[in-house]
Nucleic acid binder design. Structure first.
Length: 475
RNA sequence: GCUUCCUUAGCUCAGUAGGUUAGAGCGGCUGGCUGUUAACCAGUAGGUCCUUGGUUCGAAUCCAAGAGGGAGCGCCA
């Protein structure tokens, strides 16, 4: 008998077929003559039920078949006499691959808090919620590659280790092979990085964008999809020290094209999940609805998870400039903790107001003041703003940040200088503006923030298998 | 980095005007139940009350420090 997994049995299994069900026991219910064992192998949200008749298999053999144990049950696939499932396995033999001491196994057939599950991240993929999230995470990652591939983008592998400390996207993790206790010193007492592995200071990447631009200046349409590291001491439900980011970069694209791409891309991904992760999303939708019931009336969201997803697919995003957004916020009746003023960056509360209260749909804000955005963004004619765009989602905040890039050599050099970036450290980046420069644009999508939105979870630590956050790198 | 909350049985939680033997539900174990769906019914075992130090005749309860976790803010994706 060939290897067969539960998803395949439930989808293609024939009544009367001999099957071997392997997986982890979710629950066992015992009565006088029968035992019912629910087994899951993670290939699907659904369990398969095995029925053990004590006339053919003595109850003694089920002693070690407890919640969490890994078992192999051979038998015949039959139509279920019970009402909860169409088919079930009439057991002929029960083998226990791996026991799970029921006194010690932490996962019970009951609801656990997400905080508790985070502390047992090595076991939480065995829960319904996390296996559903991980399957959706996979589907979204696959859909990202499919979207770009179908549209002629090339997947560009940008470096994980970078010698550039000029990207300005945040604090970085140092990469070194120097002996931390006895580092080589210069005459002035500073550390001599010339003796380090790469002969210079190196860090983990905070963005693949600059290298992505180099790719776009040759292949026209590229994207990156890789791990990204930020050593920021950020303690929020929306930040990770290690996360995955998708960064398309396209030659000949201007800001409008960039917005069109971002909107189409997000709608495609959400639609893909709705189509391909239906069972898992239905489960999370129900879970979400139960969570909402616990909240006070005014904090509940008006739409359920699946309704929210469909809403994003079926409604175009609002596009407006930073300047117009500031006007709306200034005229808003709501009292904000932080005042709104042209020239300062918008606070979370302002973004939330625009997305969740004022427009009630995803918003793309554009043309931010030059001073609050990165040096590489293309300057507008008025000299005050740049062609930046942030895509804001309900409950998530900024899911995408992007811009048309400055392609004028002198302007770019001047902005880099103004924010204190040394020309020598990005000479290669500047050279693309010297040799065959062209208009181009791109953006960065935080993968986990996308997964957060699609799964309806509220903490980013619950949508990555093994989260890395300040003071936490277990597992 | 700042503000704030939490830590009691394997899990979810109750328990403070400081008082002697620390409680419930689920889970475990034992028994019952003819097909169950987080099964049900009865009985039973199970605790360094996060750690260390202090106040007190007496601390799960009060104080201090530490550890772990959550939420919010800042930074951003």
């Amino acid at each position: 008998m060939k290897n067969i997994f539960i998803k395949e049995i439930l989808k293609d299994g024939q009544i009367g077929q001999e099957v071997k069900v392997r997986g982890w026991v979710r629950t066992k219910r015992v009565s006088k003559a029968f035992a019912f064992i629910n087994i899951n192998d993670g290939t699907t949200i659904h369990n398969i039920q095995a029925v053990v008749d004590f006339e053919s298999i003595p109850e003694e053999q089920l002693k070690d078949v407890n919640t969490g144990a890994c078992v192999c049950i051979s038998g015949i696939l039959v139509a279920s006499e019970g009402s909860g499932q169409a088919v079930e396995v009439k057991a002929q033999a029960v083998e226990v691959y791996g026991k799970a001491d029921p006194e010690k196994y932490p996962l019970q057939p009951k609801r656990h808090s997400l905080e508790f599950l985070r502390e047992i991240a090595h076991l939480r993929p065995r829960t319904q919620t996390f296996s559903a999230i991980l399957r959706i995470r996979h589907a979204l990652a696959f859909a990202i590659h499919k979207y770009f591939n179908d549209r002629g983008f090339y997947y560009l592998h940008t470096p994980i280790i970078t010698g550039s400390d000029a990207e300005g996207a945040g604090e970085m993790f140092r990469v070194t092979t120097l002996d931390m206790n006895h580092p080589p010193k210069n005459e002035d007492g500073s550390i001599n990085y010339k003796e380090d592995f790469f002969g210079k200071e190196t860090n983990l990447t905070v963005s693949g964008q600059l290298e992505g631009e180099l790719g776009a200046m040759a292949l026209s349409k590229v994207y990156t999809f890789g791990p990204t590291f930020r050593a920021e001491n950020s303690n929020t439900s929306r930040h990770l020290a290690e996360f995955w980011m998708i960064e398309p970069e396209v030659a000949f694209f201007e800001l409008e094209d960039n917005m069109d791409l971002a909107e189409d891309f997000l709608q495609y991904l959400v639609a893909y999940a709705i189509e391909h992760c239906n069972d898992d999303l239905k489960f999370l939708d129900q879970r979400n609805a139960e969570e909402e019931k616990q909240k006070p009336q005014q904090e509940r969201s008006e739409l359920g998870l699946l309704e929210r997803l469909n809403f994003v697919v079926n409604n175009s995003f609002v596009r407006l400039t930073y300047t117009d957004a500031v006007e709306i916020l200034k005229n808003a009746k709501k009292k904000f903790q932080f005042p709104v003023d042209w020239g300062t960056d918008l606070q979370s509360e302002h973004e939330r107001y625009l997305v969740e209260k004022h427009f009630r749909k995803p918003v793309i804000l554009t043309n931010y003041p030059t001073e609050i955005k990165a040096f590489y963004m293309k300057q507008d004619e008025d000299g005050k703003t740049v062609r930046a765009m942030d895509v804001l989602f309900p409950g998530i905040g900024e899911i995408i940040g992007g811009s048309q890039r400055e392609d004028d050599y002198d302007k770019l050099k001047q902005r880099a200088h103004a924010v204190g970036i040394e020309e020598e450290s990005i000479w290669w980046y500047l050279e693309t503006r010297k040799f065959g420069a062209c208009p181009h644009a791109g953006f960065g999508l935080g993968f986990e923030r996308l997964v957060l939105f699609v799964t309806g979870m509220s903490n980013i630590r619950d949508v990555i298998p093994f989260p890395r956050t300040p003071k936490s790198a277990e597992f």
